[in-house]
Design a binder for these strands. Structure first.
Length: 296
DNA sequence: AATTCGCCCTGTCGGC
DNA sequence: TGCCGACAGGGCGAAT
C-alpha cells in the first residue's frame, strides 16, 4: 500500500539512475495495466531520454524527451506495486525474502518473474522493473499537454505534503459532510497522497476518532488534524516509507517506518500513549484502528 | 447530489 | 491435509 511517503521515497531513489537515461525498449506483459493508450503506443518512448521524475499524490510521473515529442509515463503502484532498478551489468536476485506476512519481497533488483508486468530497458543497460502481484497498479501514457486532464489525475487535490494549515482547514470546510473524518482524509480530491496507514496514524496523533462525522469537527481540531497529517507524512518520509507487506525501495531494501507506527496494524495491542487496548473496526470501508481513550 | 458499496486481483491465513 | 471463506486495499462505477 504505497502512499505518499513510499512513492516519494521511490522517486528520490530512482531519480539519479533514471535521469538522462535513454530508452532502448519497453516491454509490457500485462496489457490491462496500461490505461488510455494501446500497448504498442509505448514504442514512442524508444530513443527518448528520461528528463524528470515528479510525484503527484501517489502517482509517479516520468517525463521523457522534449519539445513536441515529449511523453509522460505515469505509474500508480496500487497496493502491491514495486519499482526496482537494475543497474548496467548488475546481477538480478532470484531470491525473494519472506516477510512475516508471508508475501515474497525481492531482496535486490529482482529477476523477471510472473509478477513482473512491465520493464523499461535503457541504452546503458540499466532496467526499470515493475512488479505487481495484485495488479492494482496502473500505467498511463500521454502527452504533457493532456496530463492534467487524465481521468485519474484530473480530480486530485493538492499534494498532501506541505499543504498549509489554512488551506487544509478551508478544504475541509468544503468537503466535510456526513462522511467520516477518515473518509475525507482518504479522498484524493481533498488532498492527494494520504492512504489507509497514514490516515489512521494522523487521526491518532490528532486525538480524533476516524469514524466521527467530518462536519462535527471544530476548527481547532481540524487544525490539529492538519498538523498531524504533516507530522506523520514527514516521519514516514524520514523513515523512507513503511514496509508492511510489499513496499520495497528501488534497490530492494525495506522502509523503516513500520517501527514507528502507533496504531496501524496494532489492534489489540496497548496504545503507546495511554496503554488502552487499541480497537479495530471498519470506517470508510477500510480496516481502521484507533485508541478508544485518546481519540474522541 | 452526496455517499456507500461492490468489484477488480492475488496470496495468505484461520477455521473446520 | 485440504478446501474455503475472509481479509488486505486504491480507485472507480453502480446503486441508493
Amino acid at each position: 500500500m504505497p502512499e505518499l511517503p513510499e512513492v516519494e521515497t521511490v522517486r528520490r531513489r530512482l531519480e539519479p539512475s533514471l535521469m538522462g537515461a535513454i530508452v532502448r525498449d519497453v516491454v509490457l506483459s500485462l496489457p490491462r495495466l496500461l490505461e488510455g493508450a494501446e500497448p504498442r503506443d509505448l514504442d514512442v518512448l524508444r530513443g527518448l531520454a528520461c528528463r524528470k521524475l515528479e510525484r503527484q499524490g501517489k502517482y509517479l510521473i516520468l517525463r521523457f524527451g522534449e519539445g513536441r515529442g515529449e511523453r509522460v509515463l505515469v505509474v500508480h503502484l496500487g497496493m502491491s506495486g514495486q519499482l526496482t532498478w537494475k543497474g548496467p551489468g548488475q546481477a538480478v536476485q532470484d531470491e525473494f525474502r519472506r516477510l512475516p506476512s508471508g508475501l515474497a519481497m525481492p531482496i535486490g533488483p529482482h529477476s523477471v518473474d510472473r509478477h513482473t508486468h512491465f520493464r523499461v530497458v535503457f541504452d546503458a543497460g540499466g532496467e526499470l522493473l515493475f512488479r505487481d502481484p495484485r495488479t492494482f497498479g496502473r500505467l498511463l501514457l500521454c502527452r504533457p499537454s493532456t496530463l492534467d486532464a487524465q481521468p485519474r489525475l484530473v480530480r486530485l487535490g493538492p499534494d498532501a505534503l506541505g499543504v498549509a494549515e489554512e488551506v487544509f482547514i478551508e478544504r475541509w470546510k468544503e468537503f466535510r459532510g456526513v462522511r467520516s473524518a477518515k473518509a475525507i482524509l482518504l479522498d484524493q480530491g481533498f488532498l492527494a497522497g494520504v492512504g489507509n496507514i497514514y490516515a489512521d496514524e494522523a487521526c491518532h496523533e490528532a486525538g480524533i476518532r476516524p469514524g466521527v462525522r467530518s462536519s462535527t469537527l471544530a476548527v481547532a481540531r481540524i487544525g490539529a488534524l492538519a498538523r498531524a497529517v504533516q507530522s506523520v507524512l514527514e516521519r514516514g518520509l524520514a523513515n523512507c516509507g513503511t514496509t508492511f507487506r510489499d513496499f520495497v525501495h528501488p534497490d530492494g531494501s525495506k522502509g523503516g517506518n513500520q517501527e514507528d507506527l502507533r496504531v496501524y496494524a496494532r489492534a489489540g495491542l496497548p496504545c503507546l500513549a495511554c496503554g488502552t487496548v487499541l480497537r479495530k473496526g471498519v470506517v470508510a470501508g477500510r480496516g481502521t484502528t484507533w485508541c478508544p481513550r485518546c481519540q474522541s
